[in-house]
Simulated scan of single mutants.
Amino acid sequence: MIYGINTLYEAIKSKIKIYKIYLNKKNNKNNKIKKIIKYSKKNNISLNEIINLNFKKIEKKNHQGVFAIIDHIQLLKIENIIPMIYNSGKIPLLIILDSITDVRNFGSIVRTSACTGVDAIIIATKNSVTINSDSIKTSSGGIFKIPICKEKNIIKIIRYLKSFGIQVIAVTEKTDNICYKFNYKNPTAFILGSEQKGISKKYLSLCNNTVKLPLIKNSLTSLNVSVACGAILYETIRQRLIES
């Protein structure tokens, strides 16, 4: 199940299979809602227009008078994606998430990643966020635009990425290396850890470098992980687009 106007609109643009759509009749003047209605009729999708959109699972959520039943989100394997990235002529840009379970942080990371051209997000099969309606909504539909790879052995994946010439960089406050002093124009994968435990030592030992975002003296000791992700991705885009 997904909910929210933008989320459903992005789902439609991604061409994921949609089984049923439920709309509040009061919203039918919204331009995106009009396009949703037109799409559903053209593709013979079950469309239910009702006056009061009451559904226990989403009644307390910001559903904006719309929800839908869609096909499952396909989780991919990074081994199938890396060759495709290189064959397309693109410089790989990847995100690895270590033990991030908060759906809001995950959704924000996905949304920013989709906006900055990240090629894939890698999560572990254990101690990772669940891909559900909340994480999809928080990503504003970004999850439909970027491959999500769920991997059992992150150590193996790090070694695999490095074998393809991808530098693996840990973004952590436990380093003296300021992030702006490093080159991200080359193939790069950033690892970000949970706010409680940070990045696992076994992953840190395999990284090419560790970097941190600078903080003002006597301020808080760390940033929210989704904010840190956004900052490092936009520094990467700045280097690749402006300095290239």
Rank of each mutant, 00 (worst) to 15 (best):
I85A: 01
K29Y: 12
H63L: 06
E79F: 08
Y19N: 14
A68V: 00
I100N: 06
K90L: 12
V110F: 05
N127G: 02
L47F: 06
L94I: 15
V118T: 10
S99M: 11
S108W: 14
V129H: 07
I21H: 01
K29P: 02
Q64V: 00
S135H: 01
N54G: 09
N28F: 07
I131T: 03
T112I: 13
I131N: 03
I131C: 01
E59L: 02
E59N: 14
I58F: 03
G142M: 09
D71K: 10
N132W: 10
H63D: 01
L97W: 08
S108H: 10
I82W: 04
I33V: 11
G141V: 12
A120E: 04
K60H: 11
K61E: 13
F106I: 04
I82E: 01
T101W: 12
A68D: 08
N87E: 15
N30M: 07
V129Y: 09
Y86P: 02
I18S: 01
S46R: 12
S88M: 07
K42D: 15
V118H: 03
K126E: 15
S139G: 04
E79S: 06
P83Y: 01
P83E: 06
N31P: 09
N87R: 08
L75K: 14
N44W: 13
I73V: 12
S88Y: 05
G89R: 04
L93D: 09
I18E: 06
I45D: 08
F55P: 03
D102G: 08
I85S: 02
N44C: 11
K34E: 03
N48R: 05
L47S: 10
Y22E: 06
G117C: 06
R111G: 01
N44M: 07
S108D: 08
I123T: 11
S113G: 06
N48F: 10
L94H: 05
N30C: 02
L94D: 08
N87D: 13
I58D: 04
L93R: 07
L97R: 02
K20W: 13
P92S: 11
N80T: 13
I121F: 05
S139E: 09
K56D: 15
N62R: 04
L94P: 08
G65Y: 04
I36F: 04
A124N: 10
I50Y: 07
V66K: 02
L76N: 15
T138V: 10
Q64T: 02
I21E: 05
N24Y: 07
G117P: 05
K60G: 06
P92Q: 14
Y22T: 01
K17P: 03
L23A: 02
I96Y: 07
F67P: 00
N44D: 15
S99R: 15
S135V: 07
G141Y: 10
K60F: 08
I33N: 00
N127A: 07
S46T: 13
I73Q: 11
N54K: 05
N127W: 14
K56A: 08
D98H: 10
I33T: 01
M84N: 15
G65N: 00
V129M: 01
N43W: 08
K32S: 01
E49W: 06
Y86R: 03
K20N: 15
A114F: 03
I18L: 01
N30P: 05
N31L: 13
K29L: 08
I51Y: 12
N24M: 12
G89N: 10
